[in-house]
Each structure stands twice: as C-alpha cells, then as structure tokens.
C-alpha cells in the first residue's frame, strides 16, 4: 500500500463499519481520506459498498435503513458521524447525488438559488455568478424548468447546485450514469477548473474507472465492503489486479 496523503486532511473516514437492519456488515473497517485540493476516486464493482459509503458520508444512511456501527467520519475538524444530511451540507460538503435529483418543477435559477440558500445572500450571488461562468449553458437556460432539460444539462445543474453552496468538498456519485460519453467527458473536463476556481476538493464515485482514474490524483478500490487497494491513481491504473478484475470488465463492457 502507498502512503496516504501528505496534504492537510479535509475528509477523513476511520474504521467505518455499516450494516442495514443489523444484518451482515456492508462496510467493514473502511479508512479513507481526502486532502485539501485533492480529487480522489472510489472504484468498485456493483455491490462493493460504494453507494453505502457515500450515504454514510452524506448522512443519508438512516433514511435508507442503515446504521453506522463503528468508526468516525470527520469533515475538517468537525465530527459528522451520524449527523443529519442537511447539517453536513452546511459544514461544507456539496452533493451531486446519483440520478442527479434536480428540482424538476423549479427553474434552473431557482435550483441554484436553493443550493446557495445555505450562504449569506451576497456570497450566494457571487457563487451563482461563478457557476454561470463555469457552465454558460445554465446561464442560457436560466428560466427553464429543470425537468424539461436534457440529462446532461440536468447533470450540469446538479453539479452547479452543489457548487453554489461554496463547499469545501463535493461528493460526485455516478455522474456518468445514463449519459452520452461525449457529455460525460465535457463535464469531467471541467473538474480541474472547478478545483482551481472554487478551491473545492472532490470525492468521485464512478463506475467508469478509466475516466475516474484520469481525473483523480488518488484512488481507493472497494471490494465486498473493504478497501482492497489504494494509492496514486496512476499506480492504481497500472496495478495488475485492477486491470484484470475491474478495468478489464469495464473495457469489455464498453467495447461490447
């Protein structure tokens, strides 16, 4: 295993174990960290525990019937283990949930407004302007209902809404799901800009391992609820194990 980050830690997960309804552990003893200004990827097959890990960090476990049995989650200096999701957001964790979950009956502007609502008004206006600058497409569609936009535009909006709250860290869950590869590539291309302009770290959960490894600095590989591999993305990408068991499958699937 490689040595973990040498940056100042922004998100740290230590010894996290989770189960649903008191049954078998879905996550056991997960250790993970994201440093300031880092982009970190979490890889893993379906059922490896990626979604559960995201839920535990964002505070949504309870809503889905799960519970943290052991371990600790910290964002900066704040212990966020078992806090309510809305509180965690207010501590600086922006969320780009799986399936986008934009407010369909609200306009683009209103969606961003909701994101910025956790900030003081003036600061909220500034972050919204920055989001429009980042995604000019959203500025064009300002008054359109979110539900009437294309999947790619909705994904931009979900990302924009998370950024509008000026987060320290954003969690991006399965961004590529159901989107055309070209659009996905466009959005991923913005990640480094987001980091430099918003100063936001990112934790990316992605089924498309190549894409995630390209954009991230470090990566963790989950298998059956445990971290089986972690290190610099470049090293993970060349690891024989991930090549065979994960990238290989991915490659086949995307070619087939």
């Amino acid at each position: 295993m490689m040595s973990p980050c040498n940056h100042e830690s922004l998100l740290s997960v230590a010894g996290l174990s989770v189960s649903y309804g008191g049954k078998a552990l879905v996550l056991s003893g997960i250790d993970l960290s994201v440093g300031k200004g880092e982009i970190v990827a979490i890889l893993g097959a379906n059922g490896a525990g990626k979604t559960t890990l995201i839920r535990a960090i964002s505070g949504l476990l309870k809503l889905h019937g799960g519970a943290i049995l052991a371990g600790q989650i910290k964002i900066g200096a704040d212990d966020t283990t078992r806090l309510a999701p809305e509180t965690i957001v207010r501590l600086g964790l922006g969320q780009v949930p799986e399936g986008r979950l934009v407010f369909k009956n609200l306009t683009v502007e209103e969606n961003l407004d909701v994101g910025a609502a956790v900030l003081p008004r003036e600061k909220g206006r500034r972050t919204m302007a920055a989001v429009y600058h980042l995604f000019p497409r959203l500025a064009e569609r300002r008054t359109q209902l979110a539900g009437l936009m294309s999947g790619g535009e909705q994904q931009m909006l979900a990302l924009g809404r998370a950024l509008a709250s000026s987060p320290r860290l954003i969690l991006v869950d399965e961004l590529s799901l159901g989107l055309a590869p070209l659009i996905v590539r466009d959005i991923y291309a913005q990640f480094k800009t987001i980091r430099s302009e918003f100063g936001t770290s990112m934790l990316i959960v992605e089924q498309n391992a190549r894409l995630a490894l390209d954009v991230s600095e470090r990566a963790y590989v989950l298998e059956r609820g445990e971290v089986v591999l972690s290190g610099l993305s470049a090293d993970v990408a060349t690891s024989a194990r991930i090549h065979e068991s994960y990238l290989g499958v991915q490659a086949e699937a995307s070619h087939g």
């Binding site: 949504l60 957001v89 969320q95 949930p97 979950l101 909701v114 994101g115 609502a117 709250s165």
Partner: peptide
Amino acid sequence: EAAVLSGI
C-alpha cells in the same frame, strides 16, 4: 432527498 442534500 434532493432537498436534504441541498442543505434544506
């Protein structure tokens, strides 16, 4: 869910 994840 979208609401709580937006900090509402």
